[in-house]
Amino acid sequence: MKRFPPGSIAIAQGSRVLFSDFADGGVMWTGEGDRESRHIVEFKEPFRLPPAVHVGITMWDTDHQTNARADLTAENITETGFHLVFKTWANTRVARIRADWMAIGQVPDEDDWEIE
């Protein structure tokens, strides 16, 4: 469980099409074996500490003749952003993926002051 001290809590969210490999013969559609698509997400405003980030697949289009294998994660989470990472493997053919994300965490408050 992630606990937040008293102060301002914020939620940031977004949606991103990670790739449309069927359109241009990309590796997720034509390749085999371990494959990865990595995207940097930057928050519009920084959090005070790295937030809790939740990711989910909101649209995916796969070949019906192969098994659908997917791993979607948030990696390298910082106060300013994270990496949105989709992985597949074996003979899975993925035409396209859209992922949504939500970050929840403490943000600086206008009443905060720092002593240097």
Rank of each mutant, 00 (worst) to 15 (best):
M1Q: 06
K2Y: 06
R3I: 06
F4S: 03
F4V: 00
P5T: 09
P6E: 03
G7N: 02
G7C: 03
G7M: 03
S8V: 13
S8I: 05
I11E: 07
I11H: 10
I11S: 13
A12D: 11
Q13L: 08
Q13S: 15
Q13N: 13
Q13A: 14
Q13I: 01
G14C: 02
S15G: 10
V17L: 14
L18N: 04
L18D: 12
L18K: 00
F19M: 11
F19H: 09
S20R: 08
S20L: 04
D21T: 06
F22C: 05
F22E: 14
G26D: 10
V27A: 13
M28T: 13
G31N: 02
E32Y: 12
G33P: 14
D34N: 13
D34K: 15
R35F: 08
E36I: 09
S37H: 11
R38D: 04
R38G: 04
R38S: 12
H39W: 15
I40P: 09
I40V: 15
I40T: 15
V41N: 09
V41M: 06
V41C: 06
K44A: 14
E45Y: 08
R48M: 07
P50L: 07
P50Q: 02
P50S: 02
A52G: 04
A52V: 14
V55M: 09
G56T: 10
I57V: 11
W60Y: 02
W60P: 00
W60E: 13
W60M: 14
W60H: 01
D61L: 13
T62E: 03
H64M: 09
H64V: 10
Q65F: 05
N67E: 10
A68R: 12
A68S: 14
R69T: 06
A70H: 11
A70S: 09
D71E: 12
D71V: 08
D71P: 03
D71R: 12
L72N: 08
L72S: 08
T73G: 03
N76Y: 10
T78V: 05
T78Q: 00
T78I: 10
T78E: 06
E79S: 12
T80M: 03
T80K: 05
T80I: 02
F82D: 00
F82L: 01
H83L: 14
H83V: 11
L84M: 07
L84K: 09
V85K: 03
F86K: 09
F86W: 10
K87G: 05
K87N: 13
T88E: 03
T88H: 06
W89Y: 11
N91E: 13
I97L: 15
I97R: 04
R98N: 15
A99T: 07
A99Q: 02
A99M: 01
A99F: 08
D100L: 00
W101N: 04
M102Q: 15
A103C: 03
G105L: 05
D109I: 01
D109K: 04
E110T: 01
E110V: 00
D111A: 08
D112K: 01
D112I: 05
W113H: 14
W113M: 04
W113Q: 07
E114S: 10
E114W: 10
E116V: 11
